[in-house]
Each structure stands twice: as structure tokens, then as C-alpha cells.
Amino acid sequence: MSHTVLFYIFSTLAVLGAVMVVSHKNPVSSAISLVLTLFSTAVLFVLLHAHFIAAIQILIYAGAIMVLFLFTVMFLNIRNSELRFDSMNIPKRMTFLFLFIVVVGFFASKLFSSSPVVFPKLGDPENFGTVAEVGRSLFSDYLLAFELTSVLVVIAMVGVLVIAKGRES
């Protein structure tokens, strides 16, 4: 029962945060709202027995990535007059909004009308989603992919340095 209550509370918070990300004018407010969404999603991960992923979500997404965003916003020191809101006029925006509501509503009605697929009981609820379990999978089956991500991160880091430094003049 508590699963149901927690799901509804935190999914509402996640959607609320997402709407605020899109609707705020100031990037700092958007970033704070995004933290709300990411935190609520981390709670949903805990409900799905993904404890390690929830910790990663809060540490890396809500921590490191959002700090990077806020740091850039403050580094750029944007003046308020530069913050124009939308690239579209209101009728065009409303059309898009209506389209999205229709598409999502269509999928929702399809999913809810068929017989619901409930989550089965876990065979090993003590171990599922823990650091040990995910780590064993990561370092045996997916070792090559894991090593390749390190290459990706190095390439990204070098790229960032080259782009941000700019041309010498």
C-alpha cells in the first residue's frame, strides 16, 4: 500500500518539477526544479529496488551535473534583459501542447485498457539492485563496455578543453 502512496506523491513531484523546468524564465530556477525531478526519480528507483542506481542518480545527476549547470550559469553572468522566453508565438506553442497531450493520452489509454502487468515477487529481494549485484554484472558481463566508457570520458574531457579554450589570438 505504501508503494502506491509513495509512487503517486513522487511521480506528481517529478512531473511538477519537469513542468517548472520548461516554464521558468531564469535558468537558475529551472536547474533547481530539475533537481526536484531527479530526486523524485531517485525515490522511484528505490521503490523499484534499484538502491545503487538511486544513490548514483543523486550523487552524479543531482550533485555533479547540476553543479556544472549552475556553475556555468553563474560564470556567464547573464543579464536579465537577455532572457527572452520562447522562440514561438502562443498559438504555435498551444498546438504543440495539444499534440503532446493527445499522443500521451493515447498511449496512456492503450496501456490502462489492457490487463495490467504487475511486478512479480523478486526471487532474491535481499540482493537485487545492491552494489555487489550490479558490480558483479558490470565487471564480468559488461567489462568491455565499462572500459570503453573511460575512453569516452577522456575524449569528452579533451574535447571540452579544446572547445572552451578557444582559438589563440
Binding site: A18, S87, F100, V104, L111
Partner: peptide, 29 residues
């Protein structure tokens, strides 16, 4: 809570994200 609840939630979040990408002007957002 069934699987479809989560799928619909993910759908809604994704749609809001797409809406933001299409309509917003600020590159950070």
C-alpha cells in the same frame, strides 16, 4: 501500481522534455 503506471510517467516526462527542447529559446534550458 503496475508497469503501465511507470511507463506512462516516463512518457509524460519525455513529452515535457521534448516540448521544452522545441519551444524554449535559451540554450541552457
Amino acid at each position: 501500481i503496475a508497469v503501465s503506471h511507470y511507463v506512462v510517467l516516463a512518457c509524460v516526462l519525455f513529452a515535457i522534455g521534448v516540448y521544452g527542447v522545441i519551444t524554449r529559446k535559451n540554450i541552457l534550458i
